[in-house]
Amino acid sequence: MDSVTDYLRQTVPKHKKWMAELESYAHEHQIPVMEPVSLHFLTQIVRMKKPKTILEIGTAIGYSALCMHNAYPTSKITTIEKNESMYQLALKNIKKQEKESKIDIIFGDALEEVNVLALNNIAFDIIFIDAAKGQYKRFFELVQPLLKKDGIIICDNILFRGYVVNDSTVNNKRLQNLAKKIRDFNEWLTRNEDYHTSIIPIGDGVSVSIKKNNI
């Protein structure tokens, strides 16, 4: 699989200068950002869907939000980040690209802020979840009322370095517990009768859930 991953990375178009700079910063400071192949897949979905609105759970430094905007510049993106240092970095990066009018960053816990969005009757074409992995089921359940009728929910890191397949190779109880939570989430998600879900084995694993027309 490593050779396949290397091959796929070679097929990804060369990143723009600002993308390469943000990616380099993230790697230097050990800040997780979406892997190139997964990111390319995400932005391809954005191009195909042509969303008016996107919700992102987990901003980090603003990398994926900026990439989604770049894929379809007319979309309005709302992104939520609870880590203050990440929030400040994302603000800086988004201002540097002059995208403040298109990307709205909310500082707070998504488990609380999503309820505020719901009270304001805001709905989204795409919801992208890339935050605390152990909370994925709660995030998914919480954002469902915000999803438009033909909307898509995308989750990153749902293969968790392959630990979801076999966590016995992990000599770390916390990682084992996290792998189990993600594995349980994947099972719950793929059996959820309200969505058509596919798990794509690229990067660290990406799930795509399309709301069925009867709900």
Rank of each mutant, 00 (worst) to 15 (best):
A60K: 02
L55C: 08
I182E: 03
Q176V: 01
M86Y: 14
M68Y: 10
E98Q: 15
S75K: 01
Q135R: 00
F185V: 05
R191K: 07
T79E: 09
F124W: 07
R174S: 15
L91H: 09
L119E: 10
T5E: 15
E84R: 14
T43Y: 08
Y25Q: 01
T74N: 14
S198T: 07
Q88S: 05
S75E: 07
E84D: 10
V206S: 13
S24D: 13
M1A: 15
N70T: 15
S209E: 04
T169N: 12
D156C: 11
K137Q: 13
V165F: 08
T53E: 05
Q44W: 04
K181T: 07
I105W: 00
P13M: 13
N70R: 09
A123D: 01
N186K: 06
H40I: 15
H15E: 12
E56D: 13
H40W: 14
N177D: 00
I158N: 04
K82L: 03
Y195E: 00
N121G: 08
H40Y: 14
L119H: 11
D6K: 15
D6V: 11
N83W: 08
N120P: 04
R138K: 04
P201G: 00
Q176P: 05
M34C: 09
A118C: 06
Y136E: 04
I202K: 00
R47C: 13
Q44V: 06
H29R: 02
T74G: 12
I202W: 00
F107A: 02
N83A: 09
K99M: 11
N192T: 15
I80F: 00
H27G: 12
N157K: 07
I77T: 07
F139R: 09
Y63L: 06
Y195F: 01
S75T: 15
H15R: 15
E193F: 01
V46P: 12
E28C: 11
L189F: 11
K76E: 14
D194I: 13
Y72M: 10
I106V: 03
G62W: 02
F124A: 11
Q97D: 04
K211A: 06
I94S: 04
F41R: 06
K180D: 03
